[in-house]
Design a protein around this nucleic acid. Structure first.
Lengths: 168, 168
DNA sequence: CTAATCTTTCAATAGTTATTGAAAGATTTA
DNA sequence: TAAATCTTTCAATAACTATTGAAAGATTAG
């Protein structure tokens, strides 16, 4: 398989995987291209390689920067901005976990806490089913939240090493 | 907060969270309603409570059954089918992990393996960047795959107990 | 200061995904 | 077997999400 074909397939695979996770396909494809390219790439080159418009390139790059997955890079003597992705997949993963935790898990926890304040008639079967499930979800999400906190701080080899011991 | 209001908020929260994860909102809302209701619910009741059409209800219920999150229930003396969700959140989580692993992680691993067969000119800087990143991703995804395998088989209290020990 | 180059915005448009509801298909009852 | 009840399908339509590209806004060079 030729390099260009392999790149193209990786970009397309990354993109369609992203779609299944509620992530913009183009954003994921830009990320994929930056992941497998050693040197920083300009917006124009991204537009060219992925056949996307200026607006889309600009918007999706900004989003990637927001997520902390891509950095702006200044190249001396160049007028344009260039972009470079974090290549260490463990760091990428950690960063995504950190962001999704902040954006989704923490707001969810707040809602769950509020929902526990439901007027509790303990004799009411339906009310009991509701509070029971909410309580269970809350405990689960709370545990997950704490665990992910540690994961975000963890060193990769340490993490896998211990996890392997744990699950064997 | 009244029970009905709390249910409604939970259903809406669960639905919008699902959207961010590439999951159909209505499917998640049906799931949410079934999660917080003790007794089995008929398709007509789901349609009524969530204000959705017959077609949508049918399709999304089937999808939930496919995911192994909801069961069909026959109630003696009733002509209609009823539906009941697994309430144990650990089981729900495990089931989702199992399915996504099968549908997404395993196909991804196959692609990554293929991509390692890129024509490798070791002197080529770009080729090296490509193979390095693919290799890293592959190792990472491989580890994750194995770990999730164990998680899927794990007992909840055992899992959290050990995880807490691990990350402390 | 002015022109040139680069970046950002955003309203229009395209593309994608989900929903509807009527009709066809099953199944049960009598 | 026929009628009643329930389930499934699917083409049309609606709702949502992403992309485009031209114009406005910044920044740099001369």
């Amino acid at each position: 398989m030729k390099l260009e074909a392999a790149k193209a397939q990786f970009i397309q695979t990354w993109g369609s995987l992203a779609t299944q996770w509620g992530i913009n396909k183009t954003m994921a494809q830009i990320h994929a291209l930056l992941l497998v390219t050693s040197d920083p790439i300009s917006q124009d080159d991204l537009m060219e390689e992925l056949s996307i418009s200026r607006g889309s390139a600009n918007m999706n790059i900004r989003e990637l920067i927001d997520w902390g997955l891509v950095d702006r890079v200044i190249i001396p003597g160049e007028r344009k901005e260039f972009f470079l992705a974090e290549k260490d997949i463990w760091k990428v993963f950690r960063q995504i976990v950190k962001e999704r935790k902040k954006r989704e898990l923490e707001p969810l926890l707040k809602v769950l806490q509020q929902l526990q304040a439901v007027e509790g008639d303990k004799k009411n079967r339906e009310a009991k089913a509701f509070t029971d499930t909410i309580e269970n979800i809350q405990k689960f999400v709370g545990q997950a939240d704490k665990s992910l906190d540690s994961l975000v701080k963890a060193d990769e080899s340490w993490f896998w090493g211990n996890l392997i011991k744990l699950i064997k």
